[in-house]
Design a protein around this nucleic acid. Structure first.
Lengths: 153, 153
DNA sequence: AGCAATCATCTCGCCGAGCGAGATAATAAG
DNA sequence: CTTATTATCTCGCTCGGCGAGATGATTGCT
């Protein structure tokens, strides 16, 4: 076998690893959802809401729905479910009273940290064993894949 | 700001990048599903089936369902859908006639390659710009995360 | 061999997530 | 001030997935 063939196999192995990781992370979210009586979409919604909160942006019902690819009916149902579970609150936007702001409850945030925290910690530990050039490689790889996935299809 | 704090921020940035990649790959699968009249579960099923085929393992209805976290009723419905679309065939296992082997149709494989091929190619190209130590870093990172996600929760 | 227990899949009836169409209320445009 | 647009919600429906249980095939026990 030639060198460049061997190299290509090595690259394909990484591609399959990446897919396996994506699947595994999906399953992890699903376990989280199931444990707290939610569905995958609800978890994705909480993640979007926490991202927005961390970035200091406020989130409306409509924006949440469009990020998740839901139409308005589905979005209303989603927020109803999360509100019923006590994970979010609805609040009218006083500047534009057509809009409904969705606020995450502090306990939902704590729940998410309890569940995803260990995984995040393990990942950070892993990265602490890397030197700067290796971390940079991981960073470039992930950035490149994200752009390829967002751009393709 | 201290050095180790800066380093920790860099590591958390990678953690968030990883999550973003997982989300983006999920959305990409969803687009593929929507384009061909399928649901996310159907795509995951085809991926499992192709993985098995590539590894030379044959896949039964029950094993497929358990990999996807479906019960037997849901599995039957899933295989019905895929069969109706012509993506798979049912075949009795002649060694153990209780079992139903699921075979992927060649055209379904071609479909998947058409859709995921460009993304895979872009990823391989990306990796070709990496030297062996960098590739090794990416490989170790993905392996570590996969194990952490599989083990946690 | 013969009968019970187990296993793999399928059928039936139901629940609930998400969609399309359209209603309602608030804001913007003319 | 009337009309168009925007944000959300309501209603009725489809269909993926579940629980319970039926059916057919295999294995174990005696």
């Amino acid at each position: 076998m030639q060198d460049h063939e061997r190299e290509h196999e090595r690259e394909m192995e990484i591609v399959h690893l990446l897919r396996a990781v994506a699947v595994e992370l999906g399953l992890h979210s699903t376990r989280f959802a199931g444990r707290y009586g939610m569905h995958p979409t609800d978890v994705r919604a909480l993640i979007s809401l926490m991202d927005a909160a961390r970035a200091g942006r406020d989130m409306t019902a409509g924006r949440l729905g469009s990020e998740l690819g839901l139409n308005s009916a589905g979005t209303t149902a989603l927020v109803d479910r999360l509100e019923r579970l006590g994970h979010v609150r609805r609040a009218r936007d006083e500047r534009d009273r057509r809009r409904v702001l969705i606020e995450v409850d502090e306990r939902a945030i704590a729940l998410g940290q309890d569940f995803f925290g260990p995984l995040i910690d393990r990942t950070v530990e892993l990265l602490e064993g890397f030197d700067e050039r290796e971390r940079s490689a991981v960073h470039r790889f992930l950035t490149g894949v994200r752009e390829a996935a967002a751009g393709a299809g």
